[in-house]
Amino acid sequence: MNNTSQNDNVLEIKDLSIAYEPGKYAVNGVTASVKRNSITAIMGPSGCGKSTLLRAINRMHELYPDIQTKGDILLDGQSIFSMSVIELRRKVGMVFQRPNPFPNMTIYENVVAGFSLNDIRMKKSRRDEIVENALRNVTLWDEVKESLYRKGTFLSGGQQQRLCVARAIAFNPEVLLLDEPTSALDPIATLKIEDLLGELKKKYTMVLVTHNMSQAARISDDSMFMYLGELVESGRTGTLFTTPKDPRTEAYLTGKFG
């Protein structure tokens, strides 16, 4: 890594505020950090700004010129706003709420979409290796190895979502952002994804937005609780769930709102 003096924090979010409309902050003054090779869960009631915060980490908001962003985010000690956006997104992958494999591409093409989209050419054998690896990593290989050259849209929702994870990790990012990746899936598919995330932790740092408290409790190492755009509380998941400091966190965890 380029910075030897750095601590274990892959991401440092510094006083980040984001407004969709001038003056109306969906994320307000959030300061937080994310540790390497861990899963950090972001929780909070609907509309509190979880997705907004997550999407800021790979500068997704730049696609929409009206959105204003203040503050800074450091990735390995370097401001993401000083990097080229291509470089940033190569290091920070993303998995969305609803599975979104490219409908015009085959399963194989979907996995290597990061390479083709970025105009990175390589030998067929190397591509095959990447595809097999990524699909094995998401435990999808055995299910699709016979149909690699079919469009990915015939897969079940859970399979599609694993394909999307494969697409993201094939590019070997440092950080994986996941926005409620299981909310469109049934319980069994959800369990598979959760197991998968637990495995992937060995290689990647993950930030996971979830509505599902038991999911956060099961698989995350650290947790953040957001409310009305602010980061109310963050810390080790175990601590936050057993002894929340803020009454709003407690109210949320005991199902009083959200």
């Binding site: 080229s84 291509i86 470089e87 190569r90 970025n118 105009d119 990175i120 390589m122 590019f171 070997n172």
Partner: peptide
């Protein structure tokens, strides 16, 4: 290899 390719083509 990805990083090299990217720095080359960005």
């Amino acid at each position: 290899e990805i990083n090299t390719a990217l720095t080359d083509n960005i």
